[in-house]
Amino acid sequence: MTDTLPLSSLADALHRRRSVRAFTDRPVDPALLADVFATAQRAPSGGNLQPWQATVLTGEPWQAMKDAVAARIAMGREGQQAEYDIYPRGLTEPWDARRFGVGEALYASLGIPREDKRGRLAQFMHNYTGFGAPVMLFLHCSRIMGPPQWADMGMWLQSVMLLLVEQGLASCPQECWAMYGATVRATLGLGDDQILFSGLAIGYADEAAAVNQWPVPRADIEEAIDWRGFA
């Protein structure tokens, strides 16, 4: 998240990467981004399909996207154009508790209590400004791609995020843009043969912002890993 602390290992990058929700207005060198994306092309891909495609915006094109989606948001629920279910319907434990818990911790870091519905909605709407990031990447692929290729896109996205950390940059993956997928695709000039997967806000983190400092919990490995055949 910072360009003042050197990385010592990949593990260091993984520990330091987080979804940043407050960026400075410092511009990002496009040559630096090009290097990151070129290196990320080494991400694994089944059958070497490399299904990921990305459109990267800054300046006027980025502002045009924010304006276009803001117009849909103003329409209320009728304006939504979900590309897919971001979370499974009928989410059960332990996943529902994890989702609820991280949301509560985020709002607590901002001092927004649960009963302040308006304040929470206003904070959520910051998603659609990229939290002030000067660069927004939209990740998309052909609609013919299936779950294995979506996994490939995730590995590419993770590679990009870790490489950004290495370069002193921060990011925030944002599937919320898929709630207005048709508008995003139309604004980008993408055909209906493409499906939007995610946005990725990119920039320099506002290190002083409380929303970038609260601890994000992770489940113990014993909840995720089933060890078999080990002494």
Rank of each mutant, 00 (worst) to 15 (best):
M1Y: 11
T2K: 10
T2Y: 02
D3Q: 10
D3G: 10
D3L: 03
T4L: 05
T4N: 08
T4G: 00
L5W: 07
S8N: 14
S8T: 14
S8D: 15
S9L: 02
S9G: 08
S9C: 02
L10S: 07
L10F: 12
A11G: 12
A11N: 14
D12P: 00
D12I: 00
A13C: 02
L14S: 08
L14T: 09
L14Y: 11
L14I: 14
H15K: 15
H15C: 06
H15R: 15
H15F: 05
H15Q: 14
R16W: 00
S19Y: 05
S19M: 03
S19A: 13
V20S: 01
V20F: 01
R21Y: 04
T24Q: 02
P27D: 08
P27Y: 04
P27M: 09
P30Q: 08
A31S: 12
A31Q: 15
A31G: 12
L33T: 06
A34S: 11
D35Y: 01
D35K: 10
V36W: 00
V36T: 04
F37M: 09
F37Q: 04
T39D: 15
T39M: 06
A40F: 03
R42N: 15
R42A: 12
A43Q: 08
S45Y: 11
G46A: 14
G46P: 11
G46F: 07
G46C: 07
G47Q: 02
N48F: 13
L49F: 11
Q50N: 13
Q50D: 07
Q50V: 04
Q50Y: 04
Q53D: 13
A54D: 11
A54Q: 12
V56T: 12
L57N: 06
G59Y: 06
E60K: 14
E60I: 07
P61S: 08
W62T: 05
Q63D: 13
Q63E: 13
M65T: 08
K66F: 04
K66R: 15
D67Q: 15
D67T: 14
D67I: 05
A68D: 03
A68T: 05
A70R: 14
A70M: 04
A70L: 04
A71G: 04
A71E: 15
R72G: 05
I73D: 11
I73W: 10
M75T: 03
G76F: 04
E78A: 13
E78D: 15
G79I: 03
G79D: 05
G79H: 03
G79W: 01
G79P: 01
Q80D: 09
Q81L: 01
Q81R: 09
A82D: 13
A82W: 07
E83V: 00
Y84N: 07
Y84T: 07
D85V: 00
I86P: 06
Y87R: 11
P88V: 03
P88H: 07
